[in-house]
């Protein structure tokens, strides 16, 4: 078992820097280039995409709308224009394909702050942890929807740090940086993976999509696992790994829990290359299906 100071050391030695950081790099590139695309307009007058992550327009033709926001709008009993509905369908389709919480790990800017906080905690061995249930986020998700229904306004948007930060980056920050700082400090000092892993209702919403989305990480070579625990340590949602990695032969090695953000850190960090991106129904699932068929036939 590797000790804490050496997380990822095995992978670094066995696979080299690039192979052990590849998805992390792609992911940061993705987060930053989405942001850059939004900033290209206001900064340089090149309008590839207009708006912000709440709703936007690509090349003045393709609309995108956050489905979570659209649901809240519907709950306030406002019937939106078709543009917004179409935009939400496109976004929903996209995340149904690539994984619900790809929103979190590949787009959301808050993720960079919370990942940084988690990294600092690992570096400095900070283990303070407020006791919070990972389900709190679903209560908060329900709450935000209820608020829309009861107040008839997008009440959650008055404080939603995710859209506030993005809007801040694209339209001018104001005091928005305090929100980001608060989340960072909360994660750094108070609770490990506190915001994204326990509280954020946006992430909770996208994890619901993740329960059925197509692209998933699979512990496809799980028999090679040497229990170094590195994946559990770097994973923002470590509870999702166990059923896939430590399941019996009958169970699928695919990480099906919607909370998995498809960040690919486990793929990078594993020196034994246990994990790999794949489809929800691929890999050992086949043997399961085969077993099932055998049972049915006999």
């Amino acid at each position: 078992m590797a000790n804490k100071a050496a997380i990822g050391q095995d992978a670094l030695i066995e696979k080299g820097w690039w192979k052990s950081h590849q998805w992390l790099v792609w992911r940061r590139l993705s987060q930053l280039s989405v942001l850059a695309l939004f900033l290209l307009g206001p900064w340089f007058g090149v309008w590839v995409i207009k708006g912000n992550i709440a709703s936007s327009l690509i090349l003045d033709t393709v609309p995108l709308t956050d489905p979570y926001l659209l649901i809240q709008v519907l709950l306030t009993r406002h019937l939106p224009e078709t543009t917004a509905v179409l935009g939400a369908v496109i976004v929903l389709g996209f995340y149904l394909l690539v994984g619900g919480r790809v929103y979190c790990s590949w787009v959301c800017p808050v993720n960079m702050a919370t990942d940084f906080a988690a990294w600092l905690r690992r570096r400095f061995g900070i283990t303070s942890a407020a006791r919070l249930s990972r389900n709190t986020r679903f209560w908060l998700l329900g709450l935000t929807l209820a608020m829309a229904l009861v107040t008839g306004t997008l009440a959650w948007e008055l404080i939603n740090p995710v859209t506030a930060v993005y809007r801040g980056l694209v339209f001018g920050m104001g005091l928005g940086w305090t929100v980001l700082l608060a989340i960072f400090l909360f994660d750094f000092v108070i609770a490990n993976r506190g915001w994204c892993g326990h509280l954020c209702p946006v992430g909770a919403f996208y994890s619901l999509i993740g329960r059925v989305s197509a692209v998933r990480v699979s512990a496809i070579r799980r028999e090679q696992c040497n229990d170094c625990m590195d994946c559990f340590i770097v994973c923002p949602e470590p509870q999702v790994i166990r059923p896939a990695l430590k399941g019996s032969d009958e169970t699928s090695p695919v990480i099906r829990d919607g909370a998995c953000t498809n960040c690919g850190r486990c793929v990078d960090i594993c020196s034994k290359d246990v994990f790999q991106f794949g489809l929800r129904n691929s890999g050992k699932m086949n043997s399961q299906v085969a077993n099932h068929q055998r049972e049915v036939l006999s």
Binding site: K50, G51, N52, A54, S55, S56, L57, T65, D66, L69, L70, V73, T76, R77, H78, P80, A84, A148, G152, T153, L154, E157, T163, R167, V170, F171
Partner: peptide
Amino acid sequence: DFLGACVRCGL
């Protein structure tokens, strides 16, 4: 109604 309909996209 506006506070229920506007998603604050800035378009």
